[in-house]
Amino acid sequence: MTAVPAASPPTVAIRCAAVTKHYGSGETRIAALRGVDLAVQEGGLTMLVGPSGCGKTTLISILSGILSPSSGELSVFGTDPSRLSDGERAEWRASTVGFVFQQFNLLPALTAAENAAVPLLIRGVPWKQAVEVARGHLAELGLGERCASLPRELSGGQQQRVAIARALVHDPRLLVCDEPTSALDHETGERVIDVLRTAALRSGRVVIVVTHDQRILRYADALLRMDDGCIVGDRSNTSAAPAEGT
């Protein structure tokens, strides 16, 4: 087993060594991760690509403290979330991680602004103040006019942007996104990635985006390729498109 080096350079925010994850046991045991080693730098947009079923979602679930690895070493901003108690891990997620889910998972009874405000509410920010901040983020994502709409009144792309506003609203150090642009048209998708990248470039931030969308790969600062539970390619993209877009 490879140990995490004691003195990691300050720019490395996330480090995995020999991380494995299997589901089930016995005959039905599935190895989703078979020994993942990786290092993710601060201040960039990392994209995670690979064929369906290769373990991308499993990996980001582990990095974001939703799942615990079966074995291996893990450090996210100096913390191994899998070593925290359930309560501590929940608290850690609330303060450290922003999520964009494949299914937007918006609360159907809440308006766009209220939905986007949820992470702030979880952290105890008063309702009005939280919704106000959320409105700002929605406006940034081009949804300023739809703050009072319910999710069912929004298109899929608009719902996804609400979900992204929700992921950014509490300014988390780690943002994990599973297919954030798949439901968006090209122009909207680029705009969304632009926002994600702006967030990523702030110092100390890490944004990991799982995607199949070839069109947005050029925005990646780093690209991780996965296959069959392993990282098979790790490339820093020095020629990433500028944050403002082209």
């Binding site: 974001s64 359930d86 309560g87 608290e91 997620r93 889910f101 998972n105």
Partner: peptide
């Protein structure tokens, strides 16, 4: 479940 993922105990 999303709320739980986002850190609600």
């Amino acid at each position: 479940a999303a709320l739980k993922a986002m850190g609600v105990r």
